[in-house]
Design a protein around this nucleic acid. Structure first.
Lengths: 334, 334
DNA sequence: TTGTACGCGTTATCAT
DNA sequence: ATGATAACGCGTACAA
């Protein structure tokens, strides 16, 4: 059936005129080999184009050096960045990162998860904000698992997520420092990842004395625009808009421009999401970002600690990035 | 070392009180098993939470049912969509899709490719518009390989890409039908994937009698905006802007809005890229799209044909999507 | 320093 | 219908 047989260690051994254990030794670096054997083996490897067989290694070693990443939908910029950043860390540590994506529903995500289990990944990163914890509770009990961006209570998984409360306090501080009072808040659809952030802002901002109007930002730019329009139609108009999604902030800038409202001077815009590349067209958006780089770094730290010590107690790490001062927040109109 | 041992077929066999061959038979569906044995085995599988070991299967069968996808940077929306769509096809055909991403440079992409080889993928999809063909020429000679979105001359790989020439002719047709003559063209940075499309438009539009002004659209929305500004500063101003990137089209709409130029009536905008979700805020962009869904479908068709018959002659498939009539192209001002 | 032999989990072949 | 057994490619004790 196979038109082509990959060269094996045995092929290399024959070509080099040594036994296969010698080849294995130069490959792994374990044990002693004479300089001459090493040279001959290396030449044979290069000549045959030998590439190690991960499946055979996995079987022999009992581990794969694969780590799996599950994302809900690879088309979302956040997941793309997460995949990108995580692969960096994994590669540096000598692990392969294998990414699989669901298809927007829990069933397909479970299947994707099953794929990773069959691949016998040594560690698992769950980047889905929607998959119910129950779906991987049993898995996390036996496999080093870190969940990104959402809680995973009742499971043995490590968690890294945004410090929603601190983020809300920081937002309040920034807006208060600029004398704002009437705030429009664009929230995102509730999910395991979004709910805590929606909740934190909805409770902390009013507690801090702000007059808060809430609008649903939805899943895309189109819905975000509708939310902005609703907020701008309020009377009196909010002096600041705070958005949990980059789309919301972008939509606010756009609508302001269309209506001739001066951003910062007449309407402040604060984003709590990391703006996508290229969003900073006319001006840098003031934000308290949800840094995928930071999340990935912490996720890897947790995962590698767990790989070294599987019995380690699960931890929850909250990441927080300080305000990034752009040019979209200014003093409130008096 | 492993705190946890995954249950094996042997464990299942013991729990079910049968031999491991029986278990293997119910798992694979090959051979006959009594209804009673099947039932007992299925119960044992559920009870133990057995999950097949892909590495052992790969070793025994000589193939993995993995197909690998290499992308240049997972943060680009196009690659996210490609990954998403391709996974759909692969899953339906009983293959796992494993995605790996490079880190913007050829060296990291080669390493990612190496990962896929070690995983002994049965098939390979190269979604990178930049990796030199030479880097995978030898691989494609022995492994079913399809390249998406760019040529791969001199290799044994199948190719699926946009029909750049037909796309250019279609663009010319649309613009001519609306009486346009002065055209601003936003091209994208030359790469193996972009160069043919840049070239087709730069040669075919002037041949068709258009007065073409070219601007470099760059890699992101920011650079696209600069390109649009340059085009709008021309005197006389172009009556239509045609963009190879969705960013360019979006930037054109935005700049027109800011300057009070009526889109369609005073300035037509034609996109040759698939607009990202949510881009159609105020109006539907008229486009001759580069459909990632269509590319993925054709890529899978080529790959599965090659998987069935490895000796098949490599083919090149050109995909073309007809114009999508939005509301951004109108008659030229006379 | 080198070679031999066994085991990893699975499938397929051959007896029974 | 079922059970025993030989591969698959690799790592590693162990013997030489």
């Amino acid at each position: 059936m196979p038109l082509y047989r990959n060269p094996t260690i045995i092929d290399v051994a024959q070509a080099a005129g040594v036994s296969k254990s010698v080849v294995s030794r130069v490959l792994t670096g374990n044990g002693q080999v004479s300089a001459q054997s090493r040279r001959k083996v290396q030449q044979a490897i290069a000549k045959l184009g030998y590439s190690s067989n991960a499946a055979a290694q996995a079987l022999a070693l009992g581990r794969t050096r694969n780590i799996g990443l599950l994302v809900r939908r690879s088309t979302a910029p956040f997941y793309g960045r997460l995949m990108f950043n995580l692969q960096e860390h994994a590669a540096r540590a000598g692990y392969r990162m294998i990414a699989v994506t669901g298809n927007l529903d829990n069933a397909s995500e479970s299947r994707a998860l099953q794929t990773l289990l069959e691949l016998r990944v040594d560690g698992l990163v769950i980047g889905s904000g929607n998959l119910p914890t129950e779906e991987f509770r049993v898995i996390a009990a036996n496999l080093p698992t870190v969940v990104v961006g959402r809680p995973a209570e009742g499971s043995n998984a490590d968690v890294v997520r945004i410090d929603a409360v601190r983020q809300a306090h920081e937002a309040a501080r920034v807006l208060r420092a600029n004398g704002h009072h009437r705030i429009g808040f664009i929230q995102v659809p509730d999910s395991l990842s979004a709910a805590p952030r929606n909740r934190a802002l909805r409770s902390i901002l009013p507690e801090a004395g702000f007059d808060l109007t809430v609008a649903e930002g939805g899943y895309d730019l189109h819905e975000a625009v509708l939310a902005v329009r609703a907020l701008l139609a309020e009377a009196p108009r909010p002096t600041a808009i705070i958005s949990l999604s980059a789309d919301g902030a972008w939509a606010a800038l756009r609508e302001a421009e269309v209506r001739g409202i001066a951003v910062a001077a007449e309407l402040s815009v604060l984003s709590l999401d990391q703006p996508d590349d290229g969003y900073a067209v006319t001006r840098e958006i003031t934000s308290i970002p949800q840094s995928s780089g930071e999340l990935a770094a912490q996720a890897w730290a947790l995962l590698s600690a767990r790989l070294e010590n599987p019995a380690r107690e699960p931890r929850e790490v909250l990441v927080f990035s300080p305000v990034h001062h752009g040019s979209t927040v200014g003093p409130a109109q008096s």
